[in-house]
Design a protein around this nucleic acid. Structure first.
Lengths: 118, 118
DNA sequence: AGAACATATCGATAAGCGTCGATGTCTTGA
DNA sequence: TCAAGACATCGACGCTTATCGATATGTTCT
């Protein structure tokens, strides 16, 4: 080390690294948030979410949703399940029909998190 | 039609459907936004994005990023490419090193869009 | 020119995901 | 009790994706 200290190259003085100005997202936080984004990251589910939230009262019947897409009924059912499982929509059965309701706090929280990184 | 009008069932009067209170996301808009969300919808890319934005000046060298993960260098390079291709980060080569810069307007716009649906 | 280093690209593999038709479950009205 | 309708679940198919090791590209120092 005493020998090589004579040949200190500029590479070590002009380090490529810059310091952090704030704390980045932790690994556990990232693994908690990513599934929410993944649930939204599909054109059909994005439209489903918007369609539900755009209905009066923030809720919509599955029959309404099925008609809005050129997709089979099982496919829509699958997408609704994905959104429900991550907590973006609530599910309520009323008689023969099933209503899905947008959880606006969840969406707002997610939007705030994404915006924070910017 | 004149005949069946006599047997109007309650089903048609008690419709399951509720009207829209605003215009939902269009198909083309959904297909434009979904790829952005898909790029973010991965724990590693989410942390990469946050890590870059958290560095001083909003930019970070790849060497910094590689060290922050227990993943191979090609894998990190792949994730950076995905974020770059959808326009969430900019790429600039300076000498031997490559710097990625967060495009905060893109992130802010995405956050606003997600929040609008809520 | 050649060595060392930083980063990107390639090819392969395994896992995940969107979609469908067929079928099951539950509710309502006859 | 039975038939019809609304929605969910299942199993299968093809496509996408996350990851890696090996290798290519480009830059700087000797």
């Amino acid at each position: 080390m005493s020998k090589s200290s004579l040949s200190l190259t500029p590479v070590e003085t002009v380090a490529c690294c810059s310091p952090l100005s704030r704390e980045p997202l932790s690994r556990s936080d990232a693994e908690r948030i990513a599934p929410l984004l993944k649930a939204l990251a599909d054109p059909v589910r994005l439209r489903l979410m918007s369609l539900i939230a755009s209905h009066q009262g923030g809720e919509a019947c599955v029959c309404d949703l099925n008609e809005a897409f050129d997709l089979s009924q099982p496919t829509i059912s699958h997408h609704l399940k994905v959104l429900h499982e991550v907590g973006l929509i609530d599910r309520e059965k009323r008689g023969v029909w099933v209503y899905y309701r947008a959880r606006s706090e969840a969406l707002a929280g997610l939007a705030a998190l994404v915006g924070t990184a910017a």
